[in-house]
Amino acid sequence: MNQIVSSSSIPAPAGAARGLPPALEFHQVVKRYGLVTAVAGVDFTVDRGTLVTLLGPSGCGKTTTLRLVAGLELPTTGQIRIDGTDVTFRSAAERDVSMVFQSYALFPHMSVLENVCYGLRASGVGKARAVEMAAEKLATVGLAGFEKRLPSELSGGQQQRVAVARAIVLEPKVLLFDEPLSNLDAKLRRRVREDIRQLQQQLGLTVIYVTHDQEEALAVSDRIIVMRNARIVQDGTPRDLYERPADRFIADFIGNANLVPVEVTRDDSPLARVSLDGMVLALPHRDLPAGRLDLAVRPNAFLLRAGGPQPGEIAGTIRKAAYLGSHMEYELVLPGIDRELFVVDPGVERPFEPGAVVGVRIAPHGAALVPADGGAA
């Protein structure tokens, strides 16, 4: 069974000092579909005014968890609380949440303004007030002047903003995003994710954000909850997960770490002695035992130097090289390791050719020890 690893560096709840409950609480929530368990005993809380991302590979349970928050699915067992109120078996209409869907779900025959007004009018808000509120939120997302256009007359990024305006105009206690950028091209994804993060911080929104994109999660989140096989495997800030992964899965899934077998010796100090074919590093042992462990090394933590190895380095052989404009990507082979390692190097002026032997060092800030068997750190 995977162990949940929480970070001690997560900020205290925004409302804790005022005695307010968290915006969202999951207590031992289980969701089964027949014999299939989609969510298995999940526990977490979300602080007011924070953006928390549910991250993981396809089929890990993150979208089901989001749908449980929304009330689109009801749990088999467990409890869900929003703003301190038990909503476990309440319908979607009885929960103060709004969702931005992957497909945007805009009404094609309605204008932008009518789309944003729709939820307000359905809730009984008068037409004049609904128009006023909708226009205000369209201005907030940068779409003032687009009120009369149809969704078909907008770009993908503009349609996404309409969907956001339609959700936030209801002033929900929790705003949900389900893979919101998956329909956008790479350049637009970056701009829209920045817009979402800025809006969340500007308005102090509580957001649950689902994605399978690690870079997207790192860019927008206050906290990331990583799921695998229907369970939470690590919960922490983006920096915690990137620099202190709990196990091999987290290290590889977030940041494409290279996993290198090493020998570790340690004493009572916080640092362990990490040996790799004669090269020695001093790294935090993270309470792992001495012996055979894996070293998770980020692609940009390999430092390459032309020529044979000098003291403190080991010899490596370049197998493949690719020029990507701002950097080079290499496949590197080290002694005693039966797989090629992925390396990112900023030196594009004098790149290494395939077959070149280079001196290799590892930067401590890009390396972390993890259990060799994939257990939690």
Score class of each variant (00 low, 15 high):
S7D: 15
S9L: 11
P11E: 12
A16C: 00
R18D: 14
A23D: 04
A23P: 03
L24S: 03
V29M: 09
V29C: 11
V29E: 10
T37A: 05
V39L: 06
D43K: 03
D47Q: 14
T50R: 15
L54D: 14
L55S: 07
G61V: 08
T64I: 06
R67G: 00
T76Q: 03
T76V: 01
G78V: 11
I82G: 05
G84S: 04
T85A: 11
T88K: 14
E94Y: 00
D96K: 02
V97G: 11
Q102M: 05
M110Q: 11
V112T: 13
N115M: 10
V116H: 04
A122E: 15
S123E: 06
V125K: 00
G126Q: 04
K127C: 01
A128R: 04
V131R: 02
M133S: 00
A135G: 07
G142Y: 00
L143P: 07
A144Q: 11
G145W: 00
F146M: 11
E147V: 08
K148E: 15
E153H: 02
V162Y: 00
R166P: 07
I168N: 07
V169T: 14
P172S: 14
V174H: 08
L176S: 04
F177G: 08
D178R: 02
P180Q: 05
P180E: 10
L181R: 06
L188G: 06
R197T: 01
Q201A: 07
Q201N: 08
Y209H: 13
V210T: 06
V210P: 02
H212G: 12
E215C: 00
A219L: 05
V220Q: 09
R223M: 06
N229H: 14
A230N: 11
I232V: 15
I232Q: 05
D235C: 03
D235F: 06
D235W: 09
G236Y: 00
P238V: 06
P238I: 02
R239Y: 13
R239K: 09
R239G: 05
I250P: 02
I254C: 10
G255H: 01
N256V: 04
V260W: 06
V260I: 15
D268I: 00
S269I: 10
S269R: 15
L271H: 12
A272S: 12
P284G: 10
R286G: 09
L293P: 02
F302T: 03
F302H: 09
F302W: 07
L303Q: 15
A306H: 13
G307L: 11
T317E: 15
A321W: 02
L324Q: 14
M328A: 01
E329V: 12
Y330Q: 14
I337F: 03
E340T: 15
F342I: 04
V344E: 09
R350S: 06
F352Y: 14
G355H: 09
P364A: 14
G366F: 12
A367F: 05
L369S: 11
L369K: 14
V370L: 13
A376Y: 02
A376G: 05
